[in-house]
Nucleic acid binder design. Sequence first.
DNA 1: ACCTGAACACCGTTCAAGT
DNA 2: ACCTGAACACCGTTCAAGT
Lengths: 220, 220
Amino acid sequence: MAPPGPARRLSESTVLDAAFGVVVDQGFAALSIRRVAAVLGVSPNALYTYVADRADLLRGMVERVMTAIDLGPLASTAHTPAERLEQFAVAMRRTLLGHPGGAALIMSGPIDGPHSLLLNEALLRTFVEAGKSLDDAARGAYALQVYVLGTVMLEAADGGTGDPEREETLATERRAALEHVDVSGVPLSAQTADIVARYNTTAQFRWGIRRLIDGMLAAG
Amino acid sequence: MAPPGPARRLSESTVLDAAFGVVVDQGFAALSIRRVAAVLGVSPNALYTYVADRADLLRGMVERVMTAIDLGPLASTAHTPAERLEQFAVAMRRTLLGHPGGAALIMSGPIDGPHSLLLNEALLRTFVEAGKSLDDAARGAYALQVYVLGTVMLEAADGGTGDPEREETLATERRAALEHVDVSGVPLSAQTADIVARYNTTAQFRWGIRRLIDGMLAAG
DNA sequence: ACCTGAACACCGTTCAAGT
DNA sequence: ACCTGAACACCGTTCAAGT
């Protein structure tokens, strides 16, 4: 049995745990070096042994969020490549919206950690299995991520969390709010309020990602 | 001739001017109520006569950025609806990336100002002219914005400014950086470095938006 | 190596007071 | 109505010092 030793209280992992704890309890806006330190019962500057600075802390958090994305849907052999891409995209959106601070984190800086590379590889494989060239696969993998991340950004700004029940609540709220918008001069917008109210729903996401996927997989 | 009167030094407009001045000179990260006040030669709390709080200042700035987006491409009768949508999307991306703080601003909160409504209406018109139902037009208008804004977010995080020359510089840098990435275990990614290096270019953007548009306009 | 105390140069916002 | 002075409760980061 290894000697107990002086249990190192802190590590990059415990710092990240504490950081996500702050986000869960107080929201992403409240995330600060000082608050994380407080949670750990340590002085603020103590964290600088484990993270270079605030940006480095965020990078670590982004990588954790990316790791939470399940690549399983892309490997499922029971479905067509198009179905797999759609299922994966839906799951990725849900994971990012549901993860504490997920949306804010992906917006906080570049996404180029190790798990992003695995995600990209799995997407490439799926596009290639769909019969696309390697170049088109690479372009397609990026385009799909652009659509998912754009959606997550816009939905998060609207208060979405990926939870279907909350989605319905927000849609109802938005429908009511649209009643008070001045639509003189925008006749078409006036007639589409029911659709607009449901922009930030899984159904709208599926509609768009499916058309993007269809456009990318079309023979050519 | 109206009497000169005591020229009111401040207004919401001058505050916004000063705010964009700060962003131009010192970057979006340096934007603060106190710095804007300093530029105006006034004490920090003086701004609260013209903006409710920091979030309100950002809202005003977002609306200015949206106003900078040219809806002209959507009205051009010389092109097909698909071409008009593509041209508009390219121009919108360029404007947002080129505008001081544009990307950071669209990420800072919901986009629902008056000019967003006009933009939406012009998009709806174009989709309808392409023969789509009003419902599909509404879904399509949102999907297109999702793709543009997602692109802007990712490109801005990578340092893009919409300038084609800078685009090339960044692509070259990224190509070099990819040499040092460990690609063991990701064989497909290893073979697509040339495409990946050019993810944040107008060419890649056109590739993706065209396929999204084609998927949306396809008969069905 | 890891942590603390103290400090520096910042924030957004509020309140009371002046004109 | 519009602006100031002063204050409050925060930030990230650095430096010197202790163990």
